[in-house]
Design a protein around this nucleic acid. Structure first.
Lengths: 270, 270
DNA sequence: GAGTGGTCTAGACCACCGG
DNA sequence: CGGTGGTCTAGACCACTCG
């Protein structure tokens, strides 16, 4: 707070203007930190701090030991979160849960979606997981986690974790296998007594975990990730599945529709 | 990258463990940066960097010139985004659009919601606004912005901007007045020929603007904010309103319901 | 006035990258 | 190899808050 606005903010803003004005185009290399320090007559650390500020805004990406570059704006992958993932037999609600909807949506947009085989692990439920799945009894009940990495055109897109009560997985044992469930998890779980009749969605933003930074290739001081949680309810009104999907911001548009939205509006071209 | 993990990350992790273990409770003051530098035998700058890392995670808040403290976990305000904001006359869809739903939801949770009078301004539409409202013609059409600050129990909760084509506001002139629209904007706009029959929602996360940092009281290196955009469509399938609501992450839970979700699940107590 | 964090300097060493 | 960014040092001054 030496002057009203610190020097490193000034530098960041000046570079940002050069980007917005089109003088620096997506993909172009920014001045190196050394050059910046010289041009602005500041210490290297102050120049570095300016770069950090630009990285946080998402407009600039730094490849360590190579340089900083103007981010390329990517056409975001549009994820439409309703009319999918409910039981296929419900009238007017297509979609096959878990992985299917993702692949379908991508194909509709002419993109190729792939996902890794699920990794399955058993862990102690966090408070949030416990309350979402209404697990009672033990303070730290065990929970099954199925994790899949999802890619669009080969690039990391999202990380999806599905959580089930261990109890449920003991009867529906395909949940424990590190394989896709061929018929879809919604259909599979229906056979085991849980008809998925509805869900609750929640959103939050938080800093990425180490795993997420590696998967998405995020620098240490990057944007937050977006977390979408979906709790699925069965015919008895009991939650039986919690799916948490983590997205890199900017690369996706997450959409919901309600009421009568014209088909035209549903085109990703919008 | 001197060793595998930098010193400042080690320090941050050590403090985080002391918080998670309960040794440091919400509201407690953390060691000062000066103390940290001494305890860990590092330079002041490295201690500062560790604190920055903790701030980014949201578990620590720094009050400049006073100290750093363990964040108090606040019971989040739950925002339920469906079954509201559609035309009140549509069967099974209560709710009164714009401000009403916010106040109603808060009352249901026993909280007091207030909002500032709208500030109205006319600006040039950004590309995103232009495409959401399907504005054609001029490259930079003018657009009306109505902004309200919203508070829960007196504390800043969210910042809501509604955008309309200038053309629309010239016939529906209440949109230009810096007053609440008594009957609700949905009812008001219906009288002017736009029956709101559906909407499209989108989510993203991004770093806060200067205005948002000030309103929410965010430090410069804080989490991202969550942005919820809702485009409302009229009986002709044309978009006529874009509402963008900005939330501070962690302080809110944004929810959607689909299908048959039991009433029990809709209690904020979950 | 003492303590605190925000900003800044002018260097340093290292690891990684490209040619 | 030279250039780059990541980390770090050991100081400095300032503005703000508190008692």
């Amino acid at each position: 707070m030496s002057p009203a606005t610190p020097r490193y903010i000034e530098i960041a803003r000046a570079l940002q203007k050069r980007i917005e004005s089109g003088e620096l185009l997506p993909g172009d290399q920014l001045p190196t930190e050394h050059e910046l320090a010289g041009e602005w007559n500041v210490s290297p650390n102050t120049a570095k701090q300016a770069m950090k500020e630009l990285r946080r805004s998402g407009r600039v990406e730094t490849l360590p030991h190579r340089g900083s570059f103007v981010s390329k704006e990517s056409t975001p992958f549009v994820i439409t979160l309703n009319d999918v993932d409910l039981d296929e037999d419900l009238p007017g609600r297509p979609g096959g849960g878990e992985g299917r909807a993702f692949v379908d949506e991508a194909e509709r947009q002419g993109l190729r979606a792939t996902s890794s085989l699920p990794r399955v692990s058993i862990a102690q439920a966090t408070d949030a997981q416990k309350s979402a799945l209404r697990l009672r009894g033990e303070p730290r009940p065990q929970i099954v986690r199925r994790t899949q990495q999802r890619f669009i055109d080969g690039k990391p897109n999202s990380l999806q974790h599905s959580y089930f009560a261990l109890e449920l997985a003991l009867t529906a044992q395909a949940l424990l296998a590190e394989n896709e469930i061929a018929e879809g998890s919604v259909a599979y779980l229906r056979k085991h007594g849980h008809v998925q009749v509805g869900y609750e969605d929640g959103f939050d933003a938080r800093p990425p975990t180490a795993e997420e930074m590696e998967f998405f290739g995020l620098p240490r001081d990057s944007l937050a990730v977006i977390e979408h949680s979906r709790t699925a309810f069965d015919q008895n009104g009991e939650p039986f599945r919690l799916t948490v999907t983590v997205y890199k911001p900017g690369a996706n548009r997450i959409r919901f529709f309600a009421g009568d939205v014209p088909d035209g509006a549903r085109n990703p071209a919008s």
